[in-house]
Amino acid sequence: MTYSAAVRDYLLAFADDEHLVGARHTSWIGLGPFLEEDLAFCSIAQDELGHAIGLYGLLLADVGELDTFALLRASQDYRSCWLAEIECRDWNDSLVRHWLYDRAEALRWEALAASPDADIAALAARAQREESFHLAHADQFMSRVAANDTSGRIVDSIRRLAPVAAGIWDATAAESDVLAEGFVTDSSADLAARWNDQIRADIARWGLAAEWSDAGVVAAQQHRTQRSEGFDAFHDDLQRVLSLDTAATW
């Protein structure tokens, strides 16, 4: 591929988000709140990892490098947002992250589906079909728990995670070049405004009242060059098996 450095960084940010949120979702395998949800959440995780493989594939000439590239980079070379990196130990946090993330992910793919680049547009078309399942899942689950959120745990999760999720819209440093090239026409700021409207409409439709204030995540991420607290432990876990024998063929 002959993408510019600006486009590569832009795609890498999305790829790393998909990879890490997918990996975090997999921590619920075998532990989902009930069997059908276990299957559903694992399915969503598999799709996100599949999207990451597709995006990394556009960045890598040789797919054989995939594991090395995805897992063994230095932490400062990742471009993930903090929402994708953080550990959600409670189911309510994981569920709320899934909803906030997939609302944003669908908008990002929608923007890329309109790209003049045929490869990314094709990948986006497939991902959009899958995202429709993810959004349906988030709505089905959230609408049901919202109706029974007597302990306020869901509202509490939204209050804590929505400001972190705003970091999804922290653009990579050269996003203006990506827009100038015409690779994608919607800026992160444009998408962020639509995302905000959508999540607030969801909350109102579910009969919840949740307000939050800016936690400064966008500024702290510094165009996605800074990793969140706890990233190193997560990164160690991800590369643990591969590091046992980096020359092995899997």
Partner: peptide, 8 residues
């Protein structure tokens, strides 16, 4: 072409 991106 895959059915779904994440098909193992």
């Amino acid at each position: 072409i895959p059915t779904f991106s994440g098909c193992p």
